[in-house]
Amino acid sequence: MTNWDRFLETFFNAKMMARYLPDILQGALVTIQIAGLVIVCGLLLGLALALLRSIGLRPLNLLIVFVVDLFRALPPLVIIVFIYFGLPASGVKNWGFIATWLSLTFVLMAFSEEIFWAGITSIPKGQWEAARSTGLSFGQTLINVVLPQALRLTIPPLTNRTIAITKGTALASVVAVGEILGMASSAVSNSYNPSPLTMAAIGYLILFLPLVVFGRWLETRMAWKR
């Protein structure tokens, strides 16, 4: 047996892969669930905070900035571990899943708020003045004039940041969630063969590589428009 054969036998073992494929697929489903929930909740909360901030109440804005800073400064894994081990929720079903979902949602909320806010403030004052001079209210101006322009600017950075944070779903394996990496890790220790891990790696590439390529495409497209 050549070295190459041994390598294939170890890392791409067909028998092992076949045996653990259902587990990995099940894990992929969990990964997709967490990722979907995080993206929807995180972006909505981030947008909501940015809109609240645009009202311009000083105490509220200081609070928003603090919360955003907090979740930008803390490592996601620290937040997950804190919620999972720290909060008194022993016995709650799927607590690891919930802890990961909440943690990554807060992180995406913080980063997306910054990006949404940057987009809103980059719209020239004249746009506000023109709209207000025709009688549009603050809210109408924000929704009809400012946000449509701001969102266009924010899409490329937002896409890249969302992908980077969503990749953090792998961290759920640390708090005993059976997503791809968690499933693969336990499969490796059960089978004493790393092939499940190889499958996990391929699984992540299938999930995230299209997103990364899409993000790059968006970036160049928007760059031309400018």
């Binding site: 992908i163 890790s185 790393p194 992540y204 590439l205 995230f208 990364v212």
Partner: peptide, 27 residues
Amino acid sequence: LMAWVDFFRAFPPLVLLILLFAGLPFA
């Protein structure tokens, strides 16, 4: 080069780390 960069941007760092840590001893 672009493929290399995208490859590692798509890979969760924890997966990469576990792959090295748990996989390499098998090799």
